[in-house]
Design a protein around this nucleic acid. Structure first.
Length: 454
RNA sequence: GAGGUUGUAGCUCAGUUGGUUAGAGCAUCUGAUUGUGGUUCAGAAGGUCGUGGGUUCGAGACCCAUCAUCCUCCCCA
């Protein structure tokens, strides 16, 4: 059979992995600087833990795992009946009891709900693991990709929003990626829905305005009309998303617009507080921008919402997050608020590759190669290599006494910067020949001092 | 779920209106080179042209199906 990879998945080789790890390490160390602690959850969750949390579209994109033992003859009739419900488009425990994790937030909520008695609140955790979506792959979209989440459970303090925004700014500055950090508040969108005829207008309105920068104002208005808004209501939405100016100017206009709607004013005040603390503290060059068309599809958000876009690259959002008032409510535990952000490592990688901003020094592998001149010498070299390794110098020995030509080419292909020759002559003299491959400079040193040269 | 793109050597790609034995560059291997590479030169190896049907005297090329791929929409990181 021909070897192949499932759609939307990738192998990562050494140079890619070093760059990816650079991103992971940057995010991880920043999370820890802010007091978040690590958590890992299984790749597989019970299907019912995940279903119904991401909307109808989301449910369709969850990878479900076929149960084992369906071919057991004694269970054949039950299996057949269960499968009928699958054909009707519903999931069934008898066929797919488990599913692959779709994001990290719901598993986190499940974990908090299960362990609420043991946790210290506010509970701050970070999690960097792959998630899977049965989506159609395309640019910046994979079926297996990593998310790096930091969430706080059990606190409604807006301090967390500010700190999470600072984490975004810090990480992207460390990665040398210029970004636009966009913020909005679901309460403002709720107020808009109220103005437009009721809370049930919330989802259609958010879905439509979220597409503003992609499809333009006219198409958004069309979509609002087909979703049942009348002319006056469409006009309201239009004047809402047309609000321009500085952050403060936008907030000011919103106050006028929602002067009679408490939840709207509430949202404006939250935004103002987060913005002022951020702007006071932030030492990076990343601006935070109020974007009223920012809506975010996931419907569990209830307060602040964030999104990060890279500047200068055509790519969907590389990070997003927000506040959800009742994180664990779906698991029967009420009263635990949450707020969190997520980094899309795979997209960040694509962006950094396109902008060519990875540092040079992260590709460091083996620092020297010992040439192999024969069995006898190999024994001697092995001892020296172990000594260097104990001093934290990475080295390898060419696996056979081949022509120098071959050994040189091996070193060059693996980008090993130095080669060391210890042949019979050198063993006798107690010396070693070091050659730097990029400069071509060669020197003879005492074997005992070898470690001092790397 | 809807629409489009592209599948030829390990990689990147040529291949004329259908016509002998399907090509190039890079990479690989061998030699020039018995302890000093990158350059150069000489040579070798590598393909059931994604798969299966069809049209034709003749198909890498045309038609149909199928699979894969990348991209767009939906939705999202």
């Amino acid at each position: 059979m021909k070897p192949s990879l499932p759609q939307g998945t990738r192998d990562f080789s050494a140079s890619t992995l070093r760059k990816r790890n650079f991103i992971f390490n940057t995010i991880k160390s920043t999370f820890e600087l802010y007091g978040f602690e690590p958590l890992e959850t299984p790749a597989v969750e019970n299907t019912e833990t995940l279903l119904g949390k991401y909307g109808d579209e989301g449910d369709k994109l969850i990878f479900k795992i076929l149960n084992n033992g369906l071919d057991n003859p004694t269970k054949k009739e039950t299996a057949r009946a269960d499968f009928e419900t699958i054909l009707e488009g519903r999931t069934n425990k008898g066929i797919t009891e488990r599913a692959l994790r779709y994001d990290l937030t719901i598993p986190f909520a499940r974990y908090v709900a299960m362990n609420q008695g043991q946790l210290t609140f506010p509970f701050k955790r970070y999690q960097m693991q792959p998630v899977w979506r049965a989506d159609r792959p395309q640019k910046g979209r994979y079926r297996e990709f990593y998310q790096c989440d930091a969430d706080v459970a059990g606190s409604s303090s807006l301090l967390h929003e500010t700190e999470l925004a600072l984490i975004y700014a810090t990480v992207f500055e460390k990665l040398n990626v210029r970004v636009e950090l966009k913020i909005n508040n679901r309460k403002i969108l709720t107020a808009l829905a109220t103005l437009c005829g009721g809370d049930d207008r919330m989802i259609p309105i958010t879905i439509a305005i979220d597409k503003l920068d992609k499809i333009g104002l006219e198409k958004v208005k069309e979509e609002l009309t087909t979703r049942g808004l009348n002319e006056e209501q469409v006009g309201l939405v239009e004047s809402f998303i047309s609000i321009k100016g500085s952050n403060e100017e936008k907030l000011h206009q919103l106050e006028t617009m929602f002067s009679n709607i408490a939840i709207g004013l509430d949202g404006v005040n939250e935004l103002r507080l987060i913005l002022s603390t951020y702007e006071n503290i932030n030492q990076t060059t990343t601006p935070i921008i109020v974007d009223l068309s920012l809506a975010r599809g996931l419907n569990y958000y209830t307060g602040s919402i964030f999104e990060v876009k890279a500047i200068g690259v055509q790519m969907g959002s590389i990070g997003g997050g927000g506040r959800y008032d009742n994180l664990t409510g779906l698991f029967g535990v009420n009263g635990i608020a949450g707020v969190g952000i997520s980094f899309g490592v795979d997209r960040i990688y694509d962006v950094m590759e396109e902008l060519n901003v990875f540092p040079e020094n992260i590709q460091k592998g083996t620092s020297l190669l010992f040439f192999n001149t024969g069995q006898q010498e190999q024994q001697h070299i092995l001892r020296i290599a172990q000594l260097l390794r104990s001093k934290n110098i990475s080295c390898e020995i060419y696996h056979e006494a081949a022509k120098f030509d071959k050994q040189f080419k091996y070193a060059e292909k693996k980008s090993i910067p130095n080669i060391v020759i210890i042949g019979s002559k050198e063993i006798e003299a107690g010396t070693a020949v070091i050659k730097n491959l990029s400069s071509g400079i060669q020197k003879e040193v005492a074997q005992a001092d070898l470690d001092k040269h790397f």
